[in-house]
């Protein structure tokens, strides 16, 4: 009976297995770890997977452990260091691509969307290939990943099949006639930077309300708000926005706080033209008051 149950669940899981990478998708792509480092900073991996107090090279120790409270429970960032057992040292490039682009683990389970694959699904496969090569150069850390503290029914990962059907959409949010700079900015903001994961409000099931794209909303702990960064509220110049992403200083010389300070530590690593592109894109987002 128990065996039948397990087999049934496994069968359902297989049936519900979402689209994943085609085996030949990576053919002809070669990896450049140096480019992968730029992807690493643009994608903000260290903000969640390194220790929150990490400085300098400590940011490259992706042992996990940061905790993220939400209405669905508390999620704990896993170890994605190069350790074969505790981390992802044994992952293939296809494994990383399935994780980032489809939210699927190497054994076919759904990831919770606290891992921002809803944004990363827009990323270019070449960037994932390069990122894989860069991650392989980082230190291995043997700290085991801690389990998420998520209660019923959200501990049933199969439920994420439905979530993905509703909310996983790799189309661009901002469409229309964009300049090359704005297009690059869109890629950085909507895909790798996953800015919308915090700055766009979520519905009851945790899906992003794209009609209020980047318009801000309550923080998961209910104690604060993510700011509206559409032109309807953020009236900084393009240069001001780019400078904020570089130094953390607002035009009034206040400086970024909380998790945004970690984000700026990532964007500060980007080439200046990428920060300018993100700013140019933000100017093109539909204004929401």
């Amino acid at each position: 009976m128990a065996i039948a149950g397990v087999a049934g669940a496994a069968g359902a899981l297989f049936a519900a297995r979402p689209e994943a990478l085609q085996p030949q998708a990576l053919d002809g792509l070669s990896a450049d770890p140096a480019r992968g480092e730029a992807v690493f900073w643009a994608a903000g991996c260290a903000s969640c997977h390194a220790d929150a107090d990490a400085k300098g090279d400590e940011k490259l120790v992706l042992a996990g452990g940061q905790r993220f409270a939400s209405a669905f429970g508390t999620f704990v960032a896993p170890n994605i260091s190069n350790d074969v057992d505790a981390g992802i040292g044994g992952w293939s490039t296809a494994d990383l691509a399935n994780a980032m682009l489809h939210g699927v683990s190497p054994d076919g389970a759904h990831y919770y969307p606290v891992f921002p694959y809803a944004s990363y699904s827009r990323a270019a496969l070449q960037d994932v290939v390069d990122l894989r090569a860069f991650l392989a150069t980082l230190p291995a850390d043997p700290t085991p990943s801690a389990p998420h503290e998520v209660g019923f029914p959200f501990n049933i990962r199969l439920g994420l099949t439905l979530w993905k059907a509703l909310y996983l959409d790799s189309d661009w949010v901002v469409t229309g006639d964009l300049s090359p700079e704005e297009t690059r900015g869109r890629y950085l903001v909507e895909a790798l930077g996953h800015c919308g994961e915090c700055h766009t409000p979520r519905g009851a099931l945790g899906g992003l309300q794209t009609d209020r794209w980047l318009a801000g909303g309550p923080t998961p702990d209910g104690k604060g708000r993510f700011p509206n960064i559409t032109p309807g509220a953020l009236d900084w110049s393009k240069a001001d926005i780019a400078e904020y992403l570089n130094s953390g200083f607002t035009p009034e010389y206040d400086s970024a706080g909380g998790h945004m300070a970690l984000v700026v530590e990532n964007t500060a690593h980007l080439p200046a033209e990428d920060r300018a592109a993100m700013a140019a894109y933000l100017k093109r987002v539909a204004p929401v008051k």
């Binding site: 953390g248 970024a256 706080g257 909380g258 300070a261």
Partner: peptide, 19 residues
């Protein structure tokens, strides 16, 4: 630059993001 880093380093841990 180091002064800006000192501002950010303290705000990161001890100030709300939206403050």
């Amino acid at each position: 630059g180091p002064v800006g880093a000192a501002c950010g380093d303290c705000h990161k841990t001890y100030r709300k993001s939206d403050g």
